[in-house]
Design a protein around this nucleic acid. Structure first.
Length: 873
RNA sequence: GGGCACUUAGCUCAGUGGGAGAGCGCGUCGCUUACACCGACGAUGUCGGGGGUUCAAAUCCCUCAGUGCCCACCA
């Protein structure tokens, strides 16, 4: 009899023990087995850029709850783990380190060396993150771990790109993109953020040719006037109507540009009513430029300096050029005034530098309607949700998904980075036509020969190629751009590559948006497209296809609402396109964790909590319980954070003034000793110990684990002479029938809550039943009965049976304490259960999920006893 | 500007048409052989303001105010 059980549950010891135990038994492995029903979740792959944060803890705890529950229900469960290469974020981090530690840029290192260093970093942090997930207790099939740059993922990326290219879903075009002048790449809208800064609002005038009139206009970016190609007024504006069609001169570059009428761009009530139009450097002006077929003059070099189109300002940084332009305009008497103004400026999230709108060549995936009548991606993704094939929990998030698709905005998939999946397209470098017709004809002949050669190889099954002749969005460019791009499916075939290179074709230097590979995650990780050769296309006849189709479509995707458009939508699109089936049936969107002031947590703010600190302070189960408990249907949950004094353990709440690492030293109000608040400090402080971070909200889970532990301890101390035996419900005393009725009701409620993703309800229901009913009432009532030899055996059996069920109900949420007690109970009462005893399974992980006959439940008795309990109190 | 939510005890949050609740914190008492990470008892709220529907509103509707998040825009 293990009477030597400690009075307090020690989570630390249990965690390591059971992680090893589960791993050795291989409970988390899954193989296709047609005789069993599958249950599959693919993990939202964490970025390899950093450590796990609270959002990961929440996201992965909830997935693990579902997976552990379904596993107990007998499903063949697969939780597919992995990490994301996060191209831009990772490259930015490594470039920053190289800059700080060696004072070098990526260009100093060169492409090969930089990529090598990023890989080194990736390997190190990827392993670290996976290890953290394991510490959380995540019951993933670790043998299947994938990384978005793995060869299988790369193959899926190439195949998808190739198919979309061939089918005309991918095109290349000149577009105005968000340009990060430090990283020298385009970044997506969602990789930018806006800040309001103090800026200027300058008013200038241009002389109207052939008159002595001027047009006055205002701008926040005077330097862009170097690239103006028109001045626009509203067509109905009486003040300017007589000027429409006349020309003005940009004095600094001496260019004449027209005055045009544009009702969309110009609001006559704002400013002077005149707008300078810089199509290459402003989104609205770009649209206007397209409407009026205006020339587009790019003013910037990739590093943010003015290029040769800026005349004498060439070479100046754009901000220096701004000052120079203002000065020169003033000297010409064309400067009218400046006022201070708060300006909302876009920044790159990766480099924290201001974004410049920049015209450049990019690759896109077309979302909207197609000329050939094939379904548009926006349409197929919309149908998946409106038809009910994909359901959102909570339902309201379907709206966010559908609204976004309604805009049918094309997806810019190229990034000017070195780390990531390189675009498998070769282009001809001579982008600007030919000087003489003969030259063009000769090139065409040679290229025709190349094309014939490629076709021959394709026919022989050597390679799959697709050619594109259009630059769909910019038909004008057809005349000056060499008409085709070659997309090569097996881009790793050296012979084909050298043949292309012999004809001076170059592979696109760009890599794909990281979301391109993430979009394929549900099927690429499961084996799509298989080891396909060009003559053996992916499809049901491919052996790996069948394996994939066992798990695909997956059952549920668990993620947060920020990436519905970035990720969820795109997985649906590629899943339908590649496999012909949606990637998941359910999408559960979980809440966002905020700090005590209602703000999102971030490294920069320093208002976050490290899940490992929580595990250290309260135990993994407490962390998990806390996460499940706060997952209500609401959008947010506040998590007040405190610094735990490293000297005395007192909790000192984090205040606003502590944020952004502004506070370096806190004096503990309890022990009066100084310490440094927790946070992402670059290195340890030799003079000041750093606090760990905690939050009172995890005490509930810690206490609950301890309560369970002690309930078990009580039972174990009273199991002497325990014998298994069947229970006849109708012959049991009322308290037994009551607790069994409550147990059956609780079990049904927990199951139902899990089915509806009501996580918080799961935690509450199990907690309340265990604490307020089983411990407070039933265990207390059993004490007398255990002393009486006649009633003792039944009391032991019911106690053991109920505790056994509680452990099963608790296990998905708090697997470690559940396993600890389960194993101990196995030693003392191996055969137990309700209503009759059965040998216990070797681990609670594989114990069957409980389910009791409806007849056990007696609602009126439950109510009667509940009333009685209230009276007693 | 558009959208989605939120506002209930000091704090964090459940409750969505008929008794205002939980955990933490607070007060008093208690080492009664599971548990002080505990137990017993207790205090604390015109359920954001206003209006309406209803026999009945924290709960449904309208409106105002505040907060957070997302999207768009800001010559």
């Amino acid at each position: 009899m293990p009477t030597d059980l400690p009075k307090q549950y020690d989570p630390r010891e249990a965690q390591q023990r059971w992680l090893t135990f589960w791993d050795e038994r291989g409970y988390f492995h899954s193989r296709p087995d047609e005789s069993r029903e599958p249950f599959c979740i693919v993990i939202p792959p964490p970025n390899v850029t950093g450590a796990l944060h609270m959002g990961h803890a929440l996201n992965n705890t909830l997935q693990d709850v579902l997976v552990r529950w379904r596993r107990m229900q007998g499903y063949n469960t697969l939780w597919m783990p992995g990490t994301d290469h996060a191209a831009i974020a990772t490259q930015a981090v490594v470039e920053k380190r190289v800059r700080e530690e060696e004072g070098k840029t990526r260009h100093d290192l060169g492409r090969e060396e930089l990529v090598r260093r990023i890989w080194r970093w990736t390997d190190q942090y990827g392993a670290h993150i996976l290890n953290q997930l394991k510490q959380l207790g995540a019951s993933c099939d670790w043998s299947r771990t994938r990384f978005t740059l793995d060869p299988v993922c790369a193959r899926a990326v190439r195949q998808t790109f190739f198919n979309m290219f061939r089918d005309g879903y991918i095109y290349r075009g000149k577009r105005l993109v968000n340009w990060d002048t430090q990283l020298q790449t385009s970044v997506a809208d969602d990789e930018t953020y806006s800040e309001t800064i103090k800026g200027g609002f300058w008013t200038f005038k241009y002389p109207v040719k052939g008159t002595n009139e001027f047009v006055r206009f205002s701008t926040t970016r005077p330097e862009t006037m170097l690239g103006d190609t028109a001045v626009a007024v509203h067509p109905n504006d009486e003040r300017y109507r007589h000027l429409i069609g006349m020309m003005v001169t940009i004095p600094l570059v001496g260019r004449d540009i027209p005055i045009i009428a544009d009702g969309l761009l110009v609001d006559p009530a704002l400013g002077t009513g005149c707008v300078k139009v810089t199509p290459a450097h402003d989104p609205n002006d770009y649209a206007c430029g397209q409407r009026h077929r205006l020339p587009m003059i790019n003013l910037l070099n990739p590093d943010g300096t003015i290029n040769e189109n800026g005349g004498k300002y060439a070479g100046l940084d754009r901000y220096k050029a701004r000052e120079a332009v203002i000065e020169d305009m003033e000297a010409l008497g064309l400067f009218e005034g400046r006022e201070d103004r708060d300006i909302s400026l876009k920044y790159s999230d990766r480099s924290k530098t201001p974004i410049e709108p920049y015209l450049s060549d990019q690759w896109f995936v077309k979302m909207g309607d197609r000329e050939d009548g094939k379904p548009s991606f926006a349409q197929t993704a919309t149908d998946a949700v409106t038809s009910g094939k994909v359901k959102f929990f909570p339902e309201r998030y379907a709206k966010a998904y559908l609204d976004w698709l309604g805009e049918k905005r094309d997806w810019c998939i190229s990034r000017q980075l070195w780390y990531g999946h390189r675009i498998p397209v070769w282009t001809y470098p001579g982008m600007v036509g030919f000087d003489t017709p003969t030259e063009a004809i000769n090139h065409a002949k040679r290229l025709k020969a190349l094309e014939d050669c490629l076709r021959a190889w394709e026919t022989a099954g050597r390679v799959a190629i697709a050619l594109s002749e259009t630059d769909e969005q910019n038909p004008d460019l057809r005349r000056v751009t060499y008409p085709w791009y070659v997309c090569v499916l097996n881009a790793d075939d050296k012979e084909i590559v050298s043949a292309l290179e012999a004809e001076h074709f170059n592979q696109e230097p760009d890599v794909l948006d990281t979301w391109f590979s993430s979009a394929l995650w549900p099927h690429s990780t499961l084996g799509w497209p298989g080891p396909a050769l060009p003559d053996q296309p992916p499809g049901p006849q491919n052996p790996e296809w069948a394996q994939m189709r066992y798990h695909y479509p997956t059952n549920v995707l668990v993620t947060n609402r920020d990436i519905i458009s970035l990720w969820v939508v795109r997985m649906v699109i590629t899943g339908l396109y590649n496999v012909g089936e949606v990637p998941f049936h359910h999408v559960y969107i979980h809440p966002k964790i905020l700090d005590a002031f209602g703000e999102g947590m971030s490294k920069m703010k320093g208002n976050g909590v490290d899940p490992l600190d929580i595990i250290d302070l309260y135990g993994t189960d407490a962390l998990r319980f806390g996460m499940v408990h706060l997952s209500t249907e609401n959008q947010d949950s506040k998590l007040p954070v405190s610094n735990v004094c490293p000297h005395c353990g007192a909790q000192v709440a984090v205040k606003r003034e502590h944020m952004y690492m502004r506070t370096r030293k806190i004096t503990c109000p309890e022990c009066k000793k100084p310490f440094r608040p927790g946070g992402p400090w670059p290195k340890p402080d030799p003079d000041l110990p750093t606090a760990k971070q905690g939050s009172e909200r995890f005490e509930m889970g810690r206490n609950f684990a301890n309560k369970l532990w002690n309930a078990a301890r009580f039972l174990l101390l009273n199991l002497e002479a325990y014998t298994p035996g069947a229970l006849r419900i109708e012959e049991l005393p009322i308290e037994d029938r009551w607790i069994l009725s409550r147990l059956a009701t609780t079990t049904a409620a927990v199951t139902k809550s899990l089915e509806g993703y009501q996580f918080s309800e799961v935690a509450r229901t199990v907690y309340d039943f265990t604490w307020s009913e089983f411990c407070d009432w039933y265990v207390e009532m059993s004490k007398d009965r255990l002393r009486d030899a006649a009633s003792r055996p039944t009391a032991q059996r019911v106690l053991a049976g109920v505790l056994d069920t509680i452990l099963r109900l608790v296990h998905p949420v708090m697997p470690f304490v559940a396993e600890s007690i389960w194993q101990t109970l196995n030693e003392a009462a191996f055969e137990r259960g309700l209503p009759g005893p059965e040998p216990a399974s070797e681990s609670v992980v594989i114990a069957p999920w409980p389910q009791f006959p409806e007849s056990w439940r007696d609602a009126s008795m439950e109510q009667r006893i509940a009333r009685m309990q209230e009276l007693v109190r």
